[in-house]
């Protein structure tokens, strides 16, 4: 695939991920809540205590669905990484992850990282965003660390989490995030190296050359 085809492919995979996230998250919660409401009038007659418990559950789940929708809106919003600077954009991202997923994220920056072309900065930012979402949401990490550094000829960003880890050689059907991260980096001449194993967290190293 040439660069243009790969970009289209990345966009399509991203749409697929959003569709999956909507289906598995807020849509499930809302349809289950609708079913709970539908049976509530009968449930009140036969088991008032259970009906009350259901109302509490519905409230709790609607709050969760709102949080998941908010996260998706953030993910969809365009962001001017070049205007903010990659380091500041990533700090903003980590702030949201900490607030929405209650996972502490540390960021360490070394060197002048504001040297990449705008498209490379954006690809790196979106790849890190994907890595953070995976760590917080799917890997159930309790802590995440980001190390962003500029060396002579490239910018490196290492995202490490202490989540449940996975086998990088086995991608379950319907899970495209990992492949999408790798592709994003390849489009701008970079790479993404994933080190992980079940029960031992994940470490993803993104590298992007200056040219």
């Amino acid at each position: 695939m040439n660069r243009s085809q790969r970009t289209v492919h990345i966009l399509e995979e991203e749409r697929r991920r959003f569709a999956r996230d909507l289906h598995d998250g807020p849509v499930q919660v809302l349809s289950n809540t609708s079913m709970r409401l539908n049976m509530l009038s009968q449930l009140i007659q036969v088991d008032p205590a259970l009906a009350e418990a259901e109302i509490r559950r519905m409230h709790h789940r609607l709050v969760q669905a709102t949080s998941e929708l908010r996260q998706l809106i953030y993910d969809l919003q365009p962001i001017a990484v070049d205007a903010m600077g990659l380091d500041e954009a990533l700090k903003g991202l980590t702030h949201r992850v900490q607030r929405d997923w209650a996972v502490p994220v540390t960021v360490h920056v070394s060197g002048d990282v504001r040297v990449l072309p705008a498209d490379a900065e954006m690809m790196l930012y979106r790849a890190v965003q994907e890595a953070l979402t995976n760590a917080a949401k799917h890997a159930e990490a309790r802590a995440i660390a980001i190390e962003l550094m500029a060396t002579e000829d490239q910018v490196t960003c290492i995202v490490t989490d202490d989540g449940k880890g996975f086998d990088p050689t086995h991608r379950p059907p319907g899970h495209y995030g990992l492949g999408n991260m790798v592709e994003r980096l390849e489009v701008v001449g970079g790479r993404a190296d994933v080190a992980s194993s079940p029960g031992h967290g994940t470490r993803i190293t993104f590298t992007v050359p200056y040219v």
């Binding site: 499930q28 289950n32 079913m35 709970r36 049976m39 009968q42 449930l43 036969v46 789940r61």
Partner: peptide, 16 residues
């Protein structure tokens, strides 16, 4: 595949 949906469908089926 979702526990929550299994629970709700079980309740609806029983009520039905």
């Amino acid at each position: 595949d979702t526990q929550e949906t299994r629970t709700v469908l079980s309740q609806i089926t029983t009520l039905a």
